[in-house]
Design a protein around this nucleic acid. Sequence first.
DNA 1: CGGCTGGCGGTTGTATACATTCCGACCCTG
DNA 2: CAGGGTCGGAATGTATACAACCGCCAGCCG
Lengths: 213, 213
Amino acid sequence: MSKLADTVVARLRAGIVDGSYPPDTRLTEAGLCRDFGVSRVPVREALRHLEAEGFVVSRPYAGVRVVRFGPDEAADLFAVRTTLEETTARRAATRVRDGDLPGRTEHLRDLVAMGSAALRDSPDEVAALNTSFHATVADLSGSTVLVSLFRQVAAKIEWLYAMDVGVRGPHSWSEHAAIADAVAAGDPDLAARLMGEHVQASLDGYLLRHAPS
Amino acid sequence: MSKLADTVVARLRAGIVDGSYPPDTRLTEAGLCRDFGVSRVPVREALRHLEAEGFVVSRPYAGVRVVRFGPDEAADLFAVRTTLEETTARRAATRVRDGDLPGRTEHLRDLVAMGSAALRDSPDEVAALNTSFHATVADLSGSTVLVSLFRQVAAKIEWLYAMDVGVRGPHSWSEHAAIADAVAAGDPDLAARLMGEHVQASLDGYLLRHAPS
DNA sequence: CGGCTGGCGGTTGTATACATTCCGACCCTG
DNA sequence: CAGGGTCGGAATGTATACAACCGCCAGCCG
């Protein structure tokens, strides 16, 4: 929509995701105005946007707080992500099989290569590449609705990962490679199954780290 | 979030859905201020919210327009809705099977009864009851993420139906009854399959009406 | 000691002013 | 007459100021 409000959304979301604004933080409009050097109108619009995305909650006349994000919400999020991404992978592979996609699967393989390389060279870029990989699959599905729903889930997944420190098992990119192959080969069932297992593995890893019970 | 902006969101969305603001309508902030008797700030926040929901698009400095909504978008929407609702039905039935839900399936059967009755008595309430039925299944799934994603899709589905005049085949509520039975019986696979077929039938009906090709 | 009331901080709603950008009409030229 | 460029109005984006309202908390009174 507007220029400034969008940058405030991006910066504030980044601040929430990277921990500058931890969960339960009370966000005052005046404080954010100081933080970002803008006036209240863009801040208000940004807060409303982030509320729609589920990063903050706002009780009328009682301020805006960063939401808590515990294992329960994480499990819920991963469960939804599983069905969502199985669908993106299945539809992407279907479109490849039907020839609806001219050589657009190249990009996917490039991302896998870059991700594998980044595992050694620049570990801090791995998370972004991971996001790009999944976003690309969603894009290949050709469904704008799917893309927009996925974006919302992905933003929170990113948050989840940012709260952990040195996660992301290295095996992750071999799974990505297998998914890319299945999509490029136009095998919907295989792509969906691999994607489902991949997401499930991520969830298992997360729960393993955060389930002392 | 805020009181006033929320009412503006609700009223404006209702206006879009019921056709008071047809697709491609240019929405000027000043005009909406007059229409609703509020100042520009709540209007701006409402427009931003509706943009996030996908009801309007906004090019910077070029105004806000109600989005077009054709058969392509409808097919896309229904496809996503299918996977989403298969998941809600499956999870709801799973929770029933595992005993996580004390007698909350009563409500579902009540809705089916009310819907069947409304088919004869008050046809204009059928759409709302249909929405309630699907929202209740989503609620029974126990996933807040799923509920929030479903809400977004449901709002647009409602819009779709509002643009048609006398649709909704009467068989719809017998399908609802079957779904309610499957959920209440705790049969995840059956519930998911029935829900998928139900949504597919809706899509087929829609395409039949809007596909002259 | 407990309930109530007052003030205060903060949010929300509104109004106004100004900068920026876009759209469309008009005019000029070939 | 056709095409393109330019200018002006209009709408958006932003900032600031101010009034009204709510929730929290401390202090007071019973």
